[in-house]
Design a protein around this nucleic acid. Structure first.
Lengths: 194, 194
DNA sequence: CCGGTCATGTAATCGGTTACATGATTCG
DNA sequence: CGAATCATGTAACCGATTACATGACCGG
């Protein structure tokens, strides 16, 4: 019961697309699933070993030389389907940015502003990445069956990034307003302005 | 260095708003920070004990009877400001829904559809919660200084929920299209339709 | 030959959850 | 009085990351 590791799903899923080495698997996860998933070597290799023992994957070529790619077996495909059908495990949210903003009074509007600006810049970078990713996927010829599903996850990233940008703009406005009203009640020392 | 537990931030932050028992702290975190933060008792109580040892919080009233509320001390406030100024720790994303959708080919359009629909319903519930939360915050008289910051985090929730709903609609359309094109190439057995 | 990348693995550690144990208080 | 809620805490466990160790291979 407890043993419904989502790493197993990610690994089997990756190999269901094409055979790969553990290393390549991690790269693929970083590059393509990166915006909604992550795995470390410390998870991937033991999982791969376990899956091999269970007969869900097998090595093509062996040893370090002629690096051993892993391929999914029929029982592995069955296992993957079973895992995918499991209910989605609720994520425990931990958003460090919002935690800081919630207690933003202790930081003051200026520091909050730069936090939000940083978040906005990050969301813009992410949005740009999703666009090139979408482009790449649409141009690719292989994996035609998988592509529509992959595009779904890219679209999720795009929506979420755009939402982050919109929110950031709104938040920056609110913080400016807050800063102005604070300056009205606590006017700063006079400064030469011309 | 390693010891920059964000739990410490959340606990000190909570007590910076008002003195509370450990239990109340957890309730407050669930109800108000729930959409971007979570803490369990197993984290809160040890952290509270540690903070007390360090002099960052102190008990008002003691023992089990006349339940001991914790209040933040001046050194605790200083510590909180220091913690809030730390760079935001990047989150390792793990979105079970998108993981399933990415390998959606193994599940088929219908199962994916119900996953997305479930996600949409959840986002709609969340959006409704944010609206009442916003209402409650705007009506409240206390904590006037904190309120603008709190509203920022609620706005983040609203934007993100709306984005999730928009994405879900788009995804449902795409999945329907996929289903139709699949039926065209694999026509189902004839069925009486009148 | 050297530095970077590809590749595989393990051990220590950690942040965090779950489950359990315990008991006070409150309200119907 | 009994059930629900308030309240505090601990121990076991677990998924996951980090750091470390090792070495092949390739290009300049």
């Amino acid at each position: 019961m407890g043993r419904v590791s989502q790493t197993e799903t990610a690994v089997l899923g990756g190999l269901s697309v094409q055979p790969m080495t553990g290393y390549a698997l991690r790269e693929a996860i970083r590059e393509v699933l990166g915006h909604f998933w992550s795995e470390s070597f410390g998870q991937i290799y033991p999982t791969l070993a376990e899956l091999e023992r269970a007969g869900h994957v097998q090595r093509l070529g062996s040893g370090r030389t002629d690096a051993s790619r892993f391929a999914i077996t029929p029982s592995g495909t069955a296992r993957l389907k079973q895992l995918l059908a499991q209910p989605v495990q609720p994520v425990r949210p931990r958003n460090g940015l919002l935690l800081r903003l919630f207690f933003g009074r202790q930081l003051g509007p200026a520091a909050c502003r730069s936090l939000v600006q940083e978040a906005k810049a990050e969301a813009e970078r992410a949005l740009a990445r999703y666009r090139t990713l979408r482009q790449e996927l649409q141009e690719e010829q292989e994996h035609a069956e998988d592509r529509p599903y992959w595009l779904l996850t890219v679209a999720a990233g795009e929506h979420s990034a755009r939402a982050a940008i919109d929110w950031a703009d709104e938040a920056l406005g609110a913080l400016d307003e807050l800063d102005r009203s604070r300056q009205r009640s606590h006017p700063p020392k006079e400064r030469s302005t011309g």
